[in-house]
Design a protein around this nucleic acid. Sequence first.
DNA 1: TAAAAAATACCTAGAAATCAGTAAAAATAA
DNA 2: TTATTTTTACTGATTTCTAGGTATTTTTTA
Lengths: 211, 211
Amino acid sequence: MPTDKLITALVDDHPIVIEGLKMLLQNETNLQVVGGFCTGADILSYLKINQVDLVLLDISLPDMNGLELCRLIKRQSVSTVILMLSNRTERSIIMQSIQNGASGYLLKNSSLEELRHCIYEALQGKIAYSKEVNEIISHPSPSELRGIPKLTRREKQILQLIAEGKTSQTIADELFLSPLTVDTHRKNLIQKFEVKNVAELIMVANQQDLL
Amino acid sequence: MPTDKLITALVDDHPIVIEGLKMLLQNETNLQVVGGFCTGADILSYLKINQVDLVLLDISLPDMNGLELCRLIKRQSVSTVILMLSNRTERSIIMQSIQNGASGYLLKNSSLEELRHCIYEALQGKIAYSKEVNEIISHPSPSELRGIPKLTRREKQILQLIAEGKTSQTIADELFLSPLTVDTHRKNLIQKFEVKNVAELIMVANQQDLL
DNA sequence: TAAAAAATACCTAGAAATCAGTAAAAATAA
DNA sequence: TTATTTTTACTGATTTCTAGGTATTTTTTA
């Protein structure tokens, strides 16, 4: 029994979100939700024997990365349109999504209207972003423009010790260096990260997972 | 027109989640969802003129912290039962929820059954955790065993500004305070966290997700 | 409304960090 | 082996932070 409705699958690790989307989309006349999947493995095995026109896909899944999954789905079925539906607001993740074959990107706090609109656009072959995502793309934050500085071995080591609350003198004693040398490294770290002092240094180093 | 059903409000910055929960809970015979709110301000102003028995509350909201909101709701209406519904898995956040008056904590990837069960338990006056949350609570990591200092509003604010690399003088100018006052707060922060200086302060504040 | 907590502000004085340079060994890469 | 990067170390001046306090006003809580 073929149908003229768009066969749609939902992938999200939150059952509540899946159920919610199901309910929301059941009123849409032009599409039919055939299933909700909590893992990447589930949707992939389903796609092996079933044709799906549209997939709403979350980034964070228990068994694999949503970006990776996006690529795998596209490889298995080029005609399937994928819309990413995530909380992640990082430019890089949005870009990677598109590069992996997604036709659009929505934040989960999008309105229903936006969701509808993006589905429509994506099915037309366009790349569809929700309003907020467009903002993110067009206004890169200073912290994102700030590249991740390349640190030398010594600098990493001293950064670590600074984060432990040690003074230049203490660090010098520990590494058998002159405190003046440690000061130089400290200065270079502050320069490389383009920050004002150690407080901010430790903050951005944390944001960049360097500690 | 009084009702014997439990008046329930939903607070989440994701319209999709709200709609989903609404749909899911509309089949429950013993409760009635009266509204979904996307901001803390919305629910608070609603509660000023309406009685609500149960609130399902997200942590991350656009205008204020969910933990703070939990406290405010409880202050305005003690009899209202609050269940936190969040993605955050940090012990400290779970504990803070309970301390701020919540009757339970669920992760968003809980099943519908778990949600039902927790609502039931919470209404009975118990503290209700979902399965995964129980796991988290019973396996504390070493870094989490270090007590979480209670910060005042001002201290949180100043901690934030310190993390941005601002000096006491700059912070004082910004908040219209004496730099000596900022120094006092700075000193208290260092004491409360039992650290040696701001570098370590920012480090452990990060570990405890306070920034 | 009384008690407790938070926020405000100050003193003295020493310790530590930051800025703006320079420069020479030592290690690594081309 | 030559060139580049890293690591080491210094001067001198200035700013900022930290440690020991005390104390009053304001706000919040009981």
